[in-house]
Design a protein around this nucleic acid. Sequence first.
DNA 1: GTCGCGGTGATCGTATACAATCTTGTATTA
DNA 2: TAATACAAGATTGTATACGATCACCGCGAC
Lengths: 243, 243
Amino acid sequence: MTTGRLMTEATDDTSIPQTPSLGGSAHVAEKLALAIHEHRILPGTKLSEDEVGEVFGVSRTVVRAALQQLSHDQLITLKRNRGAFVAQPSIHEAREVFEARALLEPRTARSAAERTTAADMVRLQTHIDAEHAALAAGDVGRAVYLSGQFHIEIARIAQQDTIREFITQLVARSSLIIALYWQRRSALCESHAHNALMRALVAHDGTLAEEVMQGHLLDLVSSLDLQNRAATPRSLHEVFGTR
Amino acid sequence: MTTGRLMTEATDDTSIPQTPSLGGSAHVAEKLALAIHEHRILPGTKLSEDEVGEVFGVSRTVVRAALQQLSHDQLITLKRNRGAFVAQPSIHEAREVFEARALLEPRTARSAAERTTAADMVRLQTHIDAEHAALAAGDVGRAVYLSGQFHIEIARIAQQDTIREFITQLVARSSLIIALYWQRRSALCESHAHNALMRALVAHDGTLAEEVMQGHLLDLVSSLDLQNRAATPRSLHEVFGTR
DNA sequence: GTCGCGGTGATCGTATACAATCTTGTATTA
DNA sequence: TAATACAAGATTGTATACGATCACCGCGAC
């Protein structure tokens, strides 16, 4: 066990699932997904079954179940007899992800605007405050995670569970894409756009919400470097195309 | 083992994975998914791990992996310490599924129209022929399956893998919805719409393809009975609203 | 010096065994 | 008679063990 402390150690929690309604594998999957979201585990990192099991104090059986779930969400890639690796979306995949988001999210924001309640407003404001706090603390990973949760929250307000699930997957993959292709620039425009979105929502202005969301997603894409090929491949095999 | 012959028996194939690149669990998951698609296994059916393992000649380990995958696709529902059951989408979920399809597929059809090649046309025509053959043979289940595959094929032509994956999930759930809420009526309009779609695609008429797809999905929804609550609920809890 | 080849270690794939939980049948009692 | 408590059976949840496959590395031949 040479890597260590990339993720929360087993001593952080009771190592016994605190949510008895959930299976242990779901617990492990959540923890891993959060760590990936927050960029505490970087794309390309190998997730050995033994190692993960040791960290969380569970057997390989439950680790395998968790990894399979994450694989289905395309957060990790399973290679037969090789192991699990945090996914490294290609530039092509990155474009597709944001095209899908552009297709789903503006319309969802419009729906959300028509249904935003006072309670929703409070939740959104809390979210934005948390984003600001994370940025102020310099915790970029957490800020990225919270920023994604904001988009998911909008889908929740729209009361479209099926679409929300898709957006959840897209946000997760977006987190990987940001980790790979982010070029530092305007980090503040993010939460600014979220503020504008919230204003449109509470004003029940669906058209405005749709426009703001569309522009926000475009800004997001343009803050990435999707031109240069060969952006941060971790595995030597991928560098040279062997295997 | 009292149920039997709902799905293809183990003697149908070699019971040894014929695709060595795929894990055995993927093989089992595919067979089960196909059986569910074709309505050979109906919503609400319990899929016991032992039973499935016996049918396919594999151990519970691989069955569990397959069931987990199907659960993620929402084809089955896993209940802790209870087992796996073929999913029974509620009317609300059914509406959401088709709303999501209405959001994704028309635009995807437009993209596909701009990229349809001669080879694609052949594939589409083959598909439509197979649909006709299945209908002529009275195999409604297979016709439903092939009809869904047609929609997935369009997403493939559009070269949008991410969106294609979403549509694949939605088509799968649509199959369950059709099994639950289908009210017999115009079974032929289906393939007719598919013919119209193909014509729009080969003519590279994106606008027409988008319109046809939108209308086709609306027809599909209106062929369902999503008004009556309590349409074929299997669980008594759902009948009486307890828990 | 480079290419090909087999040994070796590590890791995953699958099967089996045991523990925990739920369901169900039965007997007991008010 | 009906309700409850208890026990037996069945099913899933988890852990462990063994076998298969692949990557890595050293050795030898060309």
